[in-house]
Simulated scan of single mutants.
Amino acid sequence: MVVQQKISIKFQRAVAPLRRRLFSSDRGSASVEFSLLAIPLFIPLFIFMAQFSHSSDAQDSLRTLARESARAFVSSKDDETAFYVADQVVAQGARLLGYDPNSPKTSIELRIACDSRPCIAPNNRVLVQLTMNSSGKSQTQVAAIEYVSPWA
Rank of each mutant, 00 (worst) to 15 (best):
T106S: 10
V126F: 06
D115H: 11
E80R: 05
C114Y: 11
F34T: 11
H54F: 04
I112R: 01
R95W: 07
Y99F: 11
L45R: 10
S116I: 12
Y84M: 04
H54K: 10
R117M: 07
N102V: 06
D79M: 08
V126K: 11
R63Y: 07
A82D: 07
E68Q: 10
S24F: 09
S103L: 11
P44F: 03
S35R: 05
Y84R: 15
S24Q: 03
V32P: 03
D115V: 10
L96F: 07
I108W: 01
N123L: 13
V128C: 05
L65K: 06
A50M: 05
I47E: 06
V74T: 12
P17E: 01
R71S: 03
I39K: 07
A86S: 07
Q92S: 08
S55N: 10
L36E: 02
I39F: 12
P40R: 00
S116H: 12
A113C: 00
A82W: 04
P122Q: 13
S69W: 04
L41A: 15
L37S: 15
T106P: 01
F46G: 14
L22G: 03
N102S: 12
F23H: 08
N123Q: 15
I47D: 05
S56H: 08
I112T: 04
F48Q: 09
R125W: 02
L41I: 12
F46W: 05
S29P: 02
K77Q: 08
T81V: 14
K105Q: 12
L36S: 06
A72N: 03
R67A: 04
R19N: 01
R111L: 13
L36C: 09
V32L: 15
E68I: 09
R21K: 14
I120K: 07
Y99V: 07
Q129M: 12
R71Q: 13
V89G: 00
R20C: 01
P104L: 12
P101L: 09
V74L: 08
F73R: 01
N123Y: 14
L62N: 04
D26L: 08
G28S: 13
N124G: 14
I47L: 15
S75F: 02
C114R: 10
R71L: 08
L62V: 11
A91E: 01
R71D: 07
A66W: 00
R27S: 02
F42G: 05
R21H: 08
L37N: 11
